[in-house]
Design a protein around this nucleic acid. Structure first.
Length: 154
DNA sequence: GCCAACGTTGGC
DNA sequence: GCCAACGTTGGC
């Protein structure tokens, strides 16, 4: 059982879009970074929990909690020339990109802003990958201590 | 819109 | 394998 943080732009797909999805479930397509892919493909397990994080928006921060609903499987959007995330280098017989399904566990009572997390960057959240300068990874692991502390801020 | 921090690409 | 150029991410 591991904890994760997954970034999404609310202008594209936010926590309320997940709430509106059938079964409050969706597939996490479009990851085109090898490190993030490896986390999904190699380390994510069904039942793992993840923070649903809003990025590139007026109020970046942790918006909700989701559950990994299956093991990673090939991201079919990589094979679709009309898709924004099309990658001609991904061969259906040897897929390059993967995705998992996620289900909403709950939306947080309030969004916990990035700025608030940053205030703890050198003590209670020391070492958290999200807070590392220049971090651009869309999927990062979260330690159990950090997970519990962030939820205590809610 | 700006810019820092990366990751990727491609010539050599 | 090196590295410059380029593209992307994402906070501010």
């Amino acid at each position: 059982m591991s904890y994760w943080l997954m970034k999404s732009e609310p202008g594209e797909f936010g926590i309320d879009d997940l709430i509106a999805s059938p079964g409050r479930r969706t597939y996490w397509d479009g990851v085109r970074n090898y490190q993030a892919r490896n986390f999904m493909r190699n380390d994510m397990q069904p039942g793992d929990q993840a923070f649903f994080y809003h990025s590139s928006c007026p109020q970046p921060g942790v918006a909700g909690i989701v559950r990994v609903a299956c093991e990673a499987y090939p991201d079919h959007t990589a094979f679709d020339p009309t898709d924004k995330h099309y990658d001609p280098g991904s061969d259906p017989d040897n897929p390059r990109w993967f995705m998992v399904d996620i289900e909403l566990e709950r939306k947080l009572d309030r969004l916990i802003p990035l700025a608030e997390l940053r205030a703890f960057a050198s003590d209670r959240l020391d070492g958290m990958l999200l807070l590392r300068r220049g971090n651009r990874l869309s999927i990062t692991p979260v330690s159990e201590d950090h997970w519990n502390f962030i939820l205590s801020l809610e």
